[in-house]
Amino acid sequence: MALQIENLSKSFGSVKALCDLTLTIPEASFTCFLGPSGCGKTTFLRVIAGLETAEEGTIRLAGKDMSKTPPSDRNFGMVFQSYSLFPNMTALENVLFGLECRHWPKGDRKKRALEMLDIVQLADQAEKLPAQMSGGQQQRVAVARALAPRPSVLLLDEPLSALDANVRSELRTEFRNIQKELAITTIMVTHDQSEALEMSDQIVVLNCGRIEQSGSPVEIYAHPRNRFVAGFIGSFNVLEVSRDGSGEIRFGSQQLTANAQADAAIDSGVVGLRPEAIKVSSEPLGLENALFGTVTKVRYLGNLQILSVQPECAPDQVLDVELHGASVLSRPSERVCLNFASTALHELSR
């Protein structure tokens, strides 16, 4: 079911944790709340769950106002960051707990619980206690437990952040598949942009209790609305530019060509340029823009090298460039040419 959030505000004493948030979460979609630590992601999720009450605003589920409904009656499923399985119960008993609370018919409970454990591929671990399971297994059981009573919305608060990298990437795919299969409206909190990009239908970027931008991963990545979003999703080169007398965009001493849309919008004095949109060569490749510069730093990451380049036209700035699969290691102080198309330049608001 779709969720509509309107004008939601919440403060803790003098700290304003959420400011006037308005957002629609479409039915059966996977939405990620993304943002730096302390930006209010968890608080937002907990307000939706009903575990915190907002001072202002409404939360509507399929058109019905839920703001006054206590959390236990909302029938939302929730998975917490730290393992929240009841330590005195086996995996199966944990999953059964919600079915008992929701007064499922006695005969159906066990079948449903085993079915859910099967969905998270833990049917064979049903009799284990949480302490006898790995972190990843515990989080799967937590998902099975949350989903068993057929919640109308599933809420996940950094469910993967306590796990190590391999398990995390495995579970990303698995959780996403389960979500698609059950077609359940899901909101996940994360501070990991790659997790958000990989899993979501919709990303909501939060900063200081406000929504900076919301949209599909492609929209957010390709068209960040402002400097904050650009910097937070992937890395972005931010170029300080100006307009000369004839209205052209100048980057230091050199003129740049942007596409018409970006060109029209550039008034803020900054443009964004994704590192991977830059092609490195020794001579210009014939794209609309080409700058010469000196390599100042090389970071070697295996399949990837990240070069920091000081452009000759604007020596007080530094551009990051990504080289994929290059077998030859670049060296500092090498002179290179940076080529990029006019479409690679994005306008950013400050």
């Binding site: 575990l51 236990s72 009656d73 009841f86 005195n88 119960m89 707990f97 609370c101 437990r145 009573p149």
Partner: peptide, 22 residues
């Protein structure tokens, strides 16, 4: 952890049930 209480609440558990079961 108070997370147990919250987990139970989200599953529809009453305070009493949480107390005796968890």
């Amino acid at each position: 952890s108070s997370t147990f209480d919250e987990a139970s609440t989200m599953l529809g558990g009453s305070q009493l049930r949480t107390l005796f079961k968890v």
